[in-house]
């Protein structure tokens, strides 16, 4: 009986320690490809915690999905569907993931535009 009880304890421990793994896969092209994408006629989406811009034009959050769908529907090539995402440093992950989901559902290919680190020397 002790053995059975011990095995049951181990079984429940294993069940309790199963980590969630459901989610969304995302292919982000490597950095060198980003440069190519920037050079082409890609769409640029800017993210701040409260707003979203497409090629510099600000949109309300509820206006964004139809607008990006409309824009990407006009793009016929894969290179044209590249969306360069430029996020402000204080954009939370939950907002970022929601916006990239909208872009990918609209057929866009997300690439990141990161701020380059710059060394500033003061005299």
């Amino acid at each position: 009986m002790n053995d059975i009880a011990f095995i049951l304890i181990v079984f429940f421990l294993v069940c309790a320690s199963v980590e969630p793994e459901d989610g969304r896969s995302q292919v982000i092209p490597r950095s060198e490809k980003n440069e190519k994408a920037e050079a082409s006629q890609s769409t640029e989406v800017g993210l701040t915690p409260a707003t979203v811009t497409i090629d510099g034009t600000p949109y309300r959050l509820e206006e964004f999905p139809p607008r990006i769908r409309q824009l990407l529907a006009q793009k016929k090539t894969e290179a044209g569907r590249v969306v360069v995402l430029k996020s402000q440093a204080d954009v939370p992950y939950a907002h970022w993931i929601a916006m990239t989901e909208i872009i990918e559902q609209a057929g866009g290919i997300v690439t990141l535009l990161l701020e380059e680190e710059q060394a500033v020397h003061l005299n």
Binding site: D22, V27, S31, A89, L112, L114
Partner: peptide, 22 residues
């Protein structure tokens, strides 16, 4: 915030990893 997670995404991309957001 993006300041912390975007460099990590970039690192996964650089290493040729396939991202799966949980």
């Amino acid at each position: 915030i993006a300041e912390f997670f975007e460099p990590a995404i970039e690192a996964v991309s650089e290493a040729g990893g396939e991202l799966h957001h949980v």
